Amino acid sequence: MKMLHAPLLVLGLLLCSQGFAATAQQNKMTTCNADATTKGLKGDERKTYMSTCLKAAPVASTTKTLTPQQQKMTTCNATAKTQNLSGDARKTFMSSCLKK
């Protein structure tokens, strides 16, 4: 009877670990589905979006706190992109933006 405990314990651990993996995937599915609904996607557009979203790597950086310098870099990059800057104009803008 005691020899039966070890295999049952291993089997139980395997089932639990699969349950956690399924939960992570289910959470990702829920998030992608909510995003697609928010964007009003339907039909083939929704299928394409869901496929891309589910294949994407988990976003771990959202829980990471950015340093002030990283926040400034993100803001300056976004502004430069909004202004469609490229080449020397972008370099000049980024330099002055990051010095502020």
Rank of each mutant, 00 (worst) to 15 (best):
T62P: 05
R46I: 03
F20L: 11
T38R: 15
N33C: 10
S61G: 02
A56I: 04
A24V: 08
L11N: 09
A21Y: 14
T48K: 00
T63D: 01
C16Y: 15
R46K: 12
P58H: 13
Q26N: 06
L13N: 02
A56C: 07
T63R: 05
Y49W: 04
A36T: 03
M50L: 13
D35R: 10
Q18C: 14
K42H: 09
Q26E: 07
A24Y: 08
P58V: 12
L15H: 13
C16H: 11
S17G: 06
T62S: 06
P7N: 03
Q70N: 01
D44N: 07
P68R: 02
Q25N: 06
T52A: 12
L15P: 04
V59D: 05
L41F: 09
S17N: 07
T31R: 10
L13K: 10
M50G: 02
T38M: 14
S61A: 07
G40C: 09
A34I: 13
L11S: 14
S17W: 08
P7V: 03
Y49R: 04
T63Q: 03
T63P: 02
V10P: 04
L54A: 00
Y49M: 03
P58K: 11
M29H: 14
A34V: 15
L66V: 03
E45L: 10
N33R: 14
V10D: 00
L41T: 00
T37M: 11
K47R: 08
C16D: 02
N27M: 09
Q25W: 12
M50V: 05
K42R: 11
L15C: 14
T30A: 13
L8H: 04
Q70V: 06
P7D: 02
K55G: 08
P7C: 01
G43Y: 11
K39A: 12
G40E: 09
Q26W: 15
C16S: 05
A21V: 13
L13W: 15
A22L: 15
T48G: 02
L54V: 07
Q25S: 02
L54D: 03
T65C: 03
P58D: 11
C16Q: 08
T62F: 09
M50R: 04
V10I: 13
M73F: 01
L14Q: 12
Q69I: 06
L11W: 15
K64E: 05
C32F: 06
L8A: 01
T37C: 05
L8D: 00
Q69R: 07
Q71I: 00
C16T: 10
A34T: 10
C53S: 08
G19N: 12
D35K: 13
V10F: 10
A21H: 13
T30E: 13
T52H: 13
Q25H: 07
R46N: 03
K47P: 00
K28R: 11
L11H: 12
F20G: 00
S17D: 07
P58A: 12
E45N: 11
